[in-house]
């Protein structure tokens, strides 16, 4: 898998390069600023980009802006954005074009190597990987609203994992239940929320997020 990496702190950049290479990724470019990132993304069209939000020269949301611009030029280019903090506003902007292949994770998710690599793979495959913190805030903000209030505790857990981008199999493993039970829950959730179910994991996530954001 060909990866473009953007991270301005050398220590973290080297760590990420080592981690990704150890899991069979080919780092085609590792850059430390916004303009170079955009150039690298458009030139290499990697299988996935792993991007830090805050980059030189402005040290604002340079990385996010470059990633969004690259996705405008190369539609569907998979991008996994890492950040010290998560903002729903940014999550929205990443999801806005509805073409999937986006991830938005807190930097410390990298600590859990297995899950992080899984997220990279999922995004590269056109899926989504939303940080649990984004999802939990989104859900907390919407709990009083009618349809969400109808969900059972278990259904909320399933929805949370589903919104992060997990497949039914992964959700089943996490909650120690059978895949069949998960799919029963998801059907019930979709029914209650009025979202049309589909086999495509990614569409499913986008539908849920779009619904929650509305």
């Amino acid at each position: 898998m060909r990866v473009v990496l953007a991270e301005d702190l050398a220590l973290l950049r080297d760590g990420l390069v080592r981690l990704l290479e150890a899991h069979g990724c080919d780092i085609v470019a590792a850059v430390d600023n916004g303009p170079e990132l955009l150039k690298a993304l458009v030139e290499h069209k990697p299988d996935v980009a792993v991007v830090d939000v805050r980059l030189p020269p402005t040290f604002t949301d340079e990385g996010l802006q470059a990633a969004l611009e690259a996705r405008r030029r190369v539609p569907g280019l998979p991008v996994l954005v890492l950040s010290q903090y998560v903002e729903q506003l940014y999550a929205r902007e990443l999801l806005a074009d509805g073409s999937g292949g986006v991830g938005y994770l807190l930097k410390d998710r990298v600590f859990d190597t297995g899950q992080f690599v899984e997220a990279v793979n999922r995004v590269a495959a056109g899926g989504t990987a939303m940080d649990p913190e984004v999802i939990s805030k989104l859900l907390a903000h919407n709990t009083q609203k009618a349809p969400l209030a109808q969900l059972t505790e278990r259904e909320r857990e399933v929805l949370e994992l589903m919104a992060q981008g997990r497949s039914n199999a992964a959700i089943a493993k996490q909650l120690f239940v059978s895949e069949g039970a998960v799919s029963k829950h998801t059907t019930s959730i979709f029914g209650k929320l009025g979202v049309h179910a589909s086999d495509d994991d990614n569409r499913r996530v986008l539908a849920v997020l779009a619904y929650l954001n509305a």
């Binding site: 805050r54 604002t60 949301d61 010290q84 903090y85 506003l89």
Partner: peptide, 15 residues
């Protein structure tokens, strides 16, 4: 992170 948010929210600095 929460502390930084209380001092100067990143999104304010960014946008």
């Amino acid at each position: 992170r929460d502390l930084v948010r209380g001092i100067h929210p990143p999104v304010l600095a960014d946008r």
